[in-house]
Design a protein around this nucleic acid. Sequence first.
DNA 1: CCAACCTTGTTGAGCGTTCAACTGTTCCCC
DNA 2: GGGGAACAGTTGAACGCTCAACAAGGTTGG
Lengths: 157, 157
Amino acid sequence: MPTRWLDEDEQQTWRAFIHASRLLMDQLDREMQGDAGIPHAYYEILVRLSEAPDRAVRMADLADLTYSSRSRLSHAVAKLEQLGYVERTECPTDGRGTLAVLTDKGFASLKAAAPGHVTGVRTHLFDQLSDSQVRQLRRISESVVDHLQEPSVPGRG
Amino acid sequence: MPTRWLDEDEQQTWRAFIHASRLLMDQLDREMQGDAGIPHAYYEILVRLSEAPDRAVRMADLADLTYSSRSRLSHAVAKLEQLGYVERTECPTDGRGTLAVLTDKGFASLKAAAPGHVTGVRTHLFDQLSDSQVRQLRRISESVVDHLQEPSVPGRG
DNA sequence: CCAACCTTGTTGAGCGTTCAACTGTTCCCC
DNA sequence: GGGGAACAGTTGAACGCTCAACAAGGTTGG
């Protein structure tokens, strides 16, 4: 099957998208690193833990919630534990399992970082878009997620 | 000023967006690493070089074209040079400058990787969206880029 | 019951990015 | 034209991510 190349319009759309997501992620990462001293991805881990009953989630579930591989999460939680933000406990119902638990210190740090983060998301994303664009962005994102999460797409470990 | 928190809808939009861009970038990175043995960001560098007159671009310009910091580009070009894909030359008009030049080997590698990459972008993004959504995505991305590139936004080194 | 297999989670090496510090060059203006 | 500011690019350390290999608990079928 011959390659269907991108036409001029598609090319510019693609580049605009790459550019926007890189700029946005980099910006939020920088802000989070400055405000809380942790990368944005680590903040998301704390958020997910804070939303869970007893602030505890099993590693595998937490990996899914934060869109990350197990290895990545394992390294991340190790670092967060070292910072005193998270503790690890054996899972009572499965000898293989590990529970990650948010500590009070972690919760405090999360609480301190949250306003700045939300302001960043608003300023750099939502405030730049109309209500209709926000709705569109959600549908677009969901379509991409639905596709890439199908098992038929190779890759994800 | 009190923080304007994200409502349920905004929160889900934000998470869908994060999820989609992470999945998409990770997927394309994995495909490029498998096909060509270089990360997706390095492929973009080769593309930009290939489009330039004489396949040569100054480092600072190349950094802008590829949305990356100077340091990042410097490391990247060092690696690409070591692979034989790029060569560095002194800039004739500015003693400080360096020209990055795409070699024949680099061009060949680019040509070999291109079809797989384009197919990936089509499969994982454009094919999942309607024409109208593609148009929306472009406008949305451009708005975000325009905002984040203003000098008033702190950060970018 | 036990062997083969699957799942959970961790580890270490290799690599790319960031950040700050540094060298060398050009520009500007007094 | 000489001194200081701005600019171009590089470097090395610290750090996060990826990948493959691994240990250990669970599950299944004979």
